[in-house]
Design a protein around this nucleic acid. Structure first.
Lengths: 208, 208
DNA sequence: CAATAAAACCGACAACCTGTCGGTTTCTCT
DNA sequence: AGAGAAACCGACAGGTTGTCGGTTTTATTG
């Protein structure tokens, strides 16, 4: 463990470049040559830091995932914020105003990035579902929610929002409104809360 | 249009072989060489019938998709069957007792088949959602459902069930029961029907 | 201030992959 | 029988990933 500073800097450089290229052109359409040429290093150097191209992808995903998860945790663990806002905030943290660039998110949803998308989704969902489930249980105790299956409720809301809002950018304003209103209605029903409870906190997030 | 019989037979042979290999080893891990060697044809023959490897994948998916969709339609259009059974039957047609082999379905959900999975899911969802939405509207008129957003309700139920029941095979019986019960509860809430309405028709499908 | 060992780096290379293309065989219709 | 179209062949170009022996840089140590 001698000069690890230099090594980690190079590793970060590779990840930065790969993330940008994957986002711009897709995982399959980005060759390892593209990466090393963009940086100006040799093949051997790349494979000194990573064992395979897929290893690079996994590392890129891990980085993004950690950023998003810590963003979501910051919200959910802040007892200052009202429960409803913590819930809606963490649900939307992974979809709308995600910590990483929007540009990346748009590209992630292209068909050519199916693997990237699926891997990210799997990790995010499995990470965020227990957190959301805790919030729902807290709501149950407070009497504002009535959910007999908090974990599955969280899963359903997260999976749906993550997929359905993929193409929010390419929709007309009316369609968008319709879809968001429907989501609010269904989320309320799933969690067993009074109609309109989630209206205000969710809209606040979407409007910004 | 001379000897199209021969041509279509070869095409079917390629699709059959490709489907099997994709399912067994994944799309990325199956080379066009694997396909032509398994059949015993030359490279040129393969590319005479298909324009690219992805073209083969799309054709394989189309075939599976058509089978499943026609199965689902058979159920939904049969006015003899009660509405509730048509609804649950078509929801589950794409997940549980799908027309194609279960073996294929298991493989489809492996990470190495992300592209295949995503493409299939997209087509199936967009095909089945309007059908389910119609059934929900019919239920609204009959007074057993109360859904202000039939299309989005259908979307939510289909997307969730398609993803969440991916790994039903690798779960303990208790987990499985819990997950199915939760799904029934949430589907009832989303569609706005009395508790227990979907219990019997859904369980009937899962138990077989 | 060498000496040295580890980490970082290099680039040629093997093995593979996809898609192309000119030429050959086989079929079908006249 | 002959002619045209479809089916088929296999060598080939151009690109890809991952390996490996050898070189340079860096940090530590006697």
């Amino acid at each position: 463990m001698r000069h690890e500073k230099r090594g980690d800097a190079r590793k970060k450089e590779i990840l930065d470049t790969a993330e940008q290229l994957f986002a711009a052109n897709g995982f399959d359409n980005t060759s390892t040559n593209d990466i090393i040429n963009a940086i100006g290093i040799a093949r051997g150097t790349l494979y000194h830091h990573f064992t395979s191209k897929e290893d690079i992808l996994d590392s890129v995903i891990d980085r993004i995932n950690n950023t998003m998860m810590s963003d979501a945790k910051k919200i959910t663990e802040d007892r200052q914020i009202p429960l409803l806002d913590r819930l809606t905030g963490s649900i939307c943290a992974l979809n709308v105003d995600s910590g990483i660039g929007e540009e990346v998110m748009i590209q992630v949803h292209k068909p050519q990035n199916a693997l990237l998308h699926q891997k990210m989704q799997e990790k995010l969902i499995s990470g965020i579902v227990p957190i959301i489930a805790d919030l729902i249980e807290e709501g149950n105790r407070e009497g504002i929610f009535h959910s007999p299956y908090p974990k599955e409720a969280a899963e359903m809301v997260m999976i749906y929002s993550n997929i359905a809002f993929d193409d929010l950018a390419v929709m007309s304003p009316e369609e968008k409104t319709q879809k968001i209103q429907a989501f609010i209605c269904h989320a309320e029903r799933i969690m067993g809360t009074a109609e309109g409870t989630l209206q205000e906190p969710i809209m606040r997030i979407f409007s910004k």
